[in-house]
Design a protein around this nucleic acid. Structure first.
Lengths: 215, 215
DNA sequence: GTCTATACTACGATAGAC
DNA sequence: GTCTATCGTAGTATAGAC
């Protein structure tokens, strides 16, 4: 098993990620986290000072994954439309890679508890800021170059978050609408295409109708 | 005070709605709900059998408000584009009317606790089903009439939910992006316009460029 | 690094006086 | 319809043995 090569710390973070994604910060007890990795509750305090710190580290790790997937695309030297397409693909790949990701992220965006006191919250702020700035920069450049419509950049960032993070966090509701799990391979591909098509006709000025090459 | 004319039951529902919106089901204690309306914890059990029932009634009330705002629009006899525009307006008005609405709704969509055992959960299912069916029907009719692009209807429903419910639930993050509260009057108007414009160019086939008549 | 044991607080829910 | 009092459980966190 791959999990045998993980440190206790990493196993705890994985377990906590799955649980926080499913039931939120307040809905998860440390006892449950501990027992799902074969420890007792108090052993967690050897690895993390408090529940709040554990939570912050889980969120920071998720945001880092997104940031690492997105950064090379957003920093690449291709035109805005190509970068937009690849950005959507990279973001969706990062969200779909592990099932808890989108749910955890959506919860953390909506949660308003102030974990700001914890020093680990700085890592969260930093990663989030970088992701949002990158998305905003891409949109602003496209608008200024006349390649994108004159949309409100912050509103379009919100729309992109909703169309990706919310979608893959929607669980049962999404499955009910689509008729199968939002995270199954076909529906992930479909989501990319639907969103890219929406952006091509709804954001890009005079985008040439796309000829599909896939099966 | 208007609150003097409310029954205890209604006051409790209002208080619980605000609290559940902010901290979620597990994050709110009945003690806090009770004391925010000037009661002690055990008095709540005279009005609601359990915490789960209280929560279901709160969610059902919110969904009913949305449904009542949306139904007349979706059932009206105008064309798909006009219905889409008015639907977006009605949905956003319902979400923006009371600050907790969108947050509570987003949380309930992402929450996966099974309250299905409670009989009150039926009201929730019914209202949610009616809202989703209405949105789906509008989109399907538009596509079949050739007025909308051939999008995936379920994916577009998801996009609409993300663009509205997520947006107005985004709280601090939304405010950080927009530079002011997502629920302030100007940003609510702006959201309607941005989303309608996105849909006009991104969903409607050959939509004529719109001449704005507003201030 | 993990364990047992424990301190203290809060939770949801019930019983019964008024 | 609201109160006080209480039950049983579970929460976060700490102390100290191994």
């Amino acid at each position: 098993m791959a999990s045998d090569s993980l440190t206790s710390r990493e196993k705890i973070l994985d377990a906590a990620e799955a649980l926080f994604a499913r039931r939120g910060y307040a809905g998860v007890g440390l006892r449950e986290v501990a027992e799902s990795v074969g420890l007792v509750k108090s052993s967690l305090f050897h690895h993390f000072r408090s529940k709040a710190q554990l939570y912050c580290e889980v969120i920071a790790r998720v945001l880092d994954r997104i940031r690492l997937g997105l950064a090379p695309v957003l920093d690449s030297d291709v035109g805005p439309v190509e970068r937009l397409d690849r950005g959507v693909e990279a973001l969706i790949d990062a969200l779909a890679e592990h099932p808890p990701t989108a749910r955890l992220l959506l919860r953390s965006l909506v949660e308003e508890d102030d974990f700001d006191s914890a020093p680990e919250a700085l890592r969260v702020e930093e990663a989030l800021g970088e992701i949002l700035d990158g998305m905003g920069r891409l949109l602003r450049e496209g608008v200024e170059a006349g390649v994108f419509r004159e949309v409100s950049v912050p509103h379009m960032v919100q729309t992109l978050i909703g169309a990706t993070v919310y979608h893959f966090a929607s669980g049962d509701l999404g499955e009910r609408l689509l008729g199968r799990p939002v995270l199954c391979a076909e529906e992930v591909r479909r989501r990319k295409r639907e969103l890219q098509d929406l952006l091509h006709s709804g954001l890009v000025v005079n985008f040439p109708p796309r000829v599909r090459s896939e099966a």
